[in-house]
């Protein structure tokens, strides 16, 4: 436990989001009703995914520059945790859509593009599984990861905003405006986002550290024999 304060902070933020997210009054809107509270739980999943994928892209570039396999471990585990959060985000989104849009999958542009983005990242894991050599796997998958991140930005941020979508903030609808998010909701929403990002980072670091222990052990073995 080298630095623990941000782990506690993340937990506190998510704890606040769970308690205040259910108890604090929300705007009365038709159709969404109380399900507007899902904003505190569904949306942070995507923010966390984006944060983790950004970290993975950063470490992929770092790995290409340095050739250090430890940076590759960072990139892989950040991507894996990002994939976990993307699955959680997709499932919670489909649950929410079932009761507000009428069906879990309505081929909404944002649903389609995020599904594409997820497939691109699934392919990353498959690509890695197919290469035996450590150095080659690190190089190729790092390049792929950077391209995947470059694809994620238009898929998630640009295309859904250019077409009509059921999601708020797309097709000319406002997002983060008073209709979608009033000031009391902001008070819960921002800590929720920060908390989940910190928590996601914590989970990723646990996996990274475990992999690094394994990595060091393997290298020691090679060195001694």
């Amino acid at each position: 436990m080298r630095s623990w304060w941000w782990k506690i902070l993340g937990t506190l933020f998510v704890g606040i989001a769970i308690i205040a997210g259910i108890l604090i009054p929300v705007p009365r809107l038709d159709i969404t009703n109380e399900s507007i509270r899902n904003l505190y739980f569904h949306v942070p999943m995507w923010f966390t995914m984006i944060a983790l994928f950004s970290g993975a892209c950063y470490y992929s570039i770092k790995h290409l520059v340095s050739g250090d396999l430890r940076h590759d471990v960072y990139a892989v585990q950040l991507t894996n945790t990002g994939i976990l959060f993307s699955i959680l985000g997709m499932l919670t989104g489909m649950e929410w859509a079932q009761y507000t849009w009428g069906e879990a999958w309505s081929n909404d542009p944002k649903q389609l593009t995020t599904a594409l983005c997820m497939l691109i990242y699934f392919a990353y894991s498959i690509l890695r599984g197919g290469i035996k050599d450590d150095e080659k796997r690190g190089k190729i998958s790092s390049v792929y990861n950077i391209f995947a991140f470059a694809m994620m930005i238009p898929l998630i941020f640009v295309i859904p905003r250019m077409v009509d979508s059921l999601h708020p903030g797309n097709g000319g609808n406002p997002a983060f405006k008073k209709y979608d998010l009033d000031n009391t909701m902001r008070l819960v929403f921002y800590p929720a986002v920060a908390g989940w990002i910190l928590l996601g980072t914590w989970i990723a670091t646990l996996k990274i550290r475990l992999e690094l222990v394994q990595f060091n052990r393997d290298n020691d073995f090679l060195f001694k024999s």
Binding site: M1, K7, I203, L206, V213
Partner: peptide
């Protein structure tokens, strides 16, 4: 659970 996992990994390290 995460806290215990963290401490375990720290010990392992």
């Amino acid at each position: 659970y995460l806290l215990m996992l963290d401490r375990k990994i720290t010990k392992l390290e």
